[in-house]
Computed example of a mutant assay.
Amino acid sequence: MDISALKAKAAEIRTQLLTMIHAAKTGHTGGSLSNTDILTALYYHVMKVDPQRPKWEERDRFVASKGHSVESLWCILADLGFFPKEELATFSGFGTRLIGHPNNKVPGIEMNTGALGHGLAVSVGMALAAKRDGSPYRVFCLMGDGEQAEGSVWEAAMAGAHYKLDQLVGIIDRNRLQISGSTEEVMGLEPLEEKWRAFGWHVVSIDGNDMEALVKAFEAVPEQSGKPTLVMANTVKGKGVSFAENVPHWHHHVPNDDELALALKELAAERERWTREGQVQGQ
Rank of each mutant, 00 (worst) to 15 (best):
G117N: 05
G117P: 04
H118W: 11
H118V: 09
H118T: 13
G119M: 03
G119F: 03
G119H: 02
L120R: 00
L120T: 04
L120C: 10
L120S: 03
L120I: 09
A121G: 15
A121K: 05
A121S: 15
V122E: 05
V122D: 00
V122Q: 10
V122A: 15
S123R: 00
S123H: 10
S123C: 10
S123M: 07
V124M: 05
V124Q: 00
V124H: 00
V124L: 07
G125Q: 08
G125A: 06
G125N: 09
M126W: 14
M126C: 13
M126H: 14
M126S: 12
A127F: 15
A127W: 10
A127S: 13
L128I: 07
L128E: 09
L128A: 13
L128Q: 12
L128V: 02
A129T: 10
A129C: 11
A129F: 11
A129G: 06
A130H: 12
A130E: 01
K131Y: 08
K131H: 12
K131G: 07
K131I: 09
R132G: 05
R132A: 11
R132W: 12
D133K: 15
D133H: 13
D133Q: 14
G134S: 04
G134F: 08
G134D: 08
G134P: 01
S135T: 09
S135A: 15
S135G: 12
S135F: 14
S135P: 05
P136D: 01
P136I: 03
P136L: 05
Y137T: 06
Y137K: 10
Y137D: 00
Y137N: 11
Y137C: 07
R138P: 02
R138C: 03
R138V: 05
V139T: 15
V139Y: 13
V139H: 07
V139K: 01
V139C: 13
F140K: 00
F140W: 12
F140C: 03
F140D: 01
F140Y: 15
C141Q: 00
C141M: 05
L142R: 02
L142G: 08
L142H: 08
M143G: 11
M143Q: 03
M143V: 09
M143W: 01
M143K: 00
M143N: 12
G144P: 02
G144Y: 00
G144C: 06
G144T: 02
G144S: 06
G144H: 02
G144R: 00
D145Y: 08
D145E: 14
D145A: 12
D145P: 11
G146R: 06
G146A: 09
G146C: 01
E147M: 04
E147R: 04
E147A: 01
Q148H: 14
Q148G: 04
Q148A: 13
Q148F: 03
Q148N: 14
A149P: 03
A149G: 12
A149Q: 15
A149I: 07
E150S: 07
E150C: 08
G151E: 07
G151A: 09
S152P: 03
S152Y: 05
S152D: 13
S152T: 12
S152H: 11
S152A: 13
V153S: 01
V153F: 08
V153T: 14
V153Q: 06
W154M: 07
W154I: 02
W154L: 07
W154F: 06
W154H: 10
W154G: 10
E155M: 03
E155Q: 08
E155G: 02
A156W: 05
A156S: 03
A156G: 09
A157N: 01
A157W: 02
